[in-house]
């Protein structure tokens, strides 16, 4: 008994240091380099955002100081912004424009992708090719025809004018085309056997199963529409019908830039996007990964 006890104890004692040595995480030099690089890159990405927020809290005489925190933080710049331009109205306009544009991207993308994938018609490959090609056409090429069209349709200086030309996007069609193409045909055929026609199949069978792709597309389209600057610049006439990106420009004058208010306005403009990011962090990253964008 004692001998066996000793054997157990001695074997335990022999094993224990081995286990504890294994349990201790070992840091490899390669991993250390990767982590250091990632930390540096994260710092480079985050620091401008931090600097924007901090600068928005600084007084005018302190704006060019290199201090990491203002000596007397204040919200004066925010008050100034809200008194100088209809910032809340512009934020609301931008939310409407970005939200409706994103919804329309998803809707038109769904319809086009369904037709291209599910309906067999002559030249469908050619149509798909044309859509893919149109993605490569730069905005500057379509800018003037779009402007003329918007002008003739009476859409100048309206929110509809900011939305309608961007209601459909080749990127949305291509992204949903591939998602729909990989959707199991048998499930659609089962729905056809159950008596469902195209409309039901699209809304009741395919769409619920493409939620991840649709969410990705919606988020990307919303961010892209939110950040749109050039088209609103061309189309907007009055500040009331303008979007927040145009509002930011108000603080860049010929006499010099009003850095404090500009940073405060930029912070306000970034808040919805930051909120989306914080709420839907996983989906946002997924959507960027899926779309191949970084």
């Amino acid at each position: 008994m004692t001998t066996s006890m000793n054997r157990v104890l001695s074997s335990g004692a022999a094993v224990e240091p081995e286990v504890s040595r294994k349990a201790r995480p070992r840091i490899r030099p390669g991993a250390l380099t990767i982590h250091a690089t990632m930390i540096l890159l994260a710092f480079i990405a985050i620091f401008p955002v931090y600097w924007m927020v901090v600068s928005s809290l600084k007084a005018e005489n302190e704006i060019f100081s290199t201090g990491l925190w203002p000596s007397a933080p204040s919200l004066d710049n925010y008050g100034f912004v809200l008194s100088q331009i209809p910032m809340l109205r512009m934020l609301a306009n931008t939310t409407v424009v970005a939200g409706v544009t994103a919804a329309l991207h998803v809707l038109t993308g769904l319809f086009a992708a369904y037709a291209l994938v599910r309906w067999r018609f002559r030249f469908s490959g050619f149509v798909y090719g044309l859509i893919a090609l149109s993605w490569l056409v730069p905005f500057q090429v379509t800018m003037i025809p779009n402007y003329v069209l918007a002008s003739r349709l009476g859409l100048l200086d309206t929110l509809a004018g900011l939305i309608v030309p961007h209601a459909a996007a080749a990127f949305a069609v291509l992204m949903l085309y591939h998602a729909m193409k990989s959707f199991p045909t048998e499930i659609i055929e089962a729905a056809r056997m159950d008596g469902a026609k195209h409309w039901r199949i699209l809304w009741e069978i395919i769409t619920p199963n493409l939620r991840a792709s649709l969410a990705s597309l919606g988020i990307l389209a919303f961010i892209s529409a939110w950040n749109e600057y050039f088209w609103p610049l061309l189309l907007s006439r009055s500040i009331e019908n303008s979007v927040v990106q145009i509002g930011l420009q108000m603080f860049m004058t010929q006499e010099g830039n009003l850095w404090g208010p500009l940073m405060a306005a930029s912070t306000l403009a970034s808040l919805p996007i930051l909120a989306i990011y914080l709420l839907l962090q996983r989906q946002v990253i997924e959507s960027f990964m899926k779309s191949g964008l970084r």
Binding site: E186, I187, E189, M193, G195, K197, N209
Partner: peptide, 20 residues
Amino acid sequence: LEPGDRGCAMVFQNYALYPH
């Protein structure tokens, strides 16, 4: 006739159940 209008029901190889 459309598949749903023929009065036929089908059991598929991969079951083809609606996942959602």
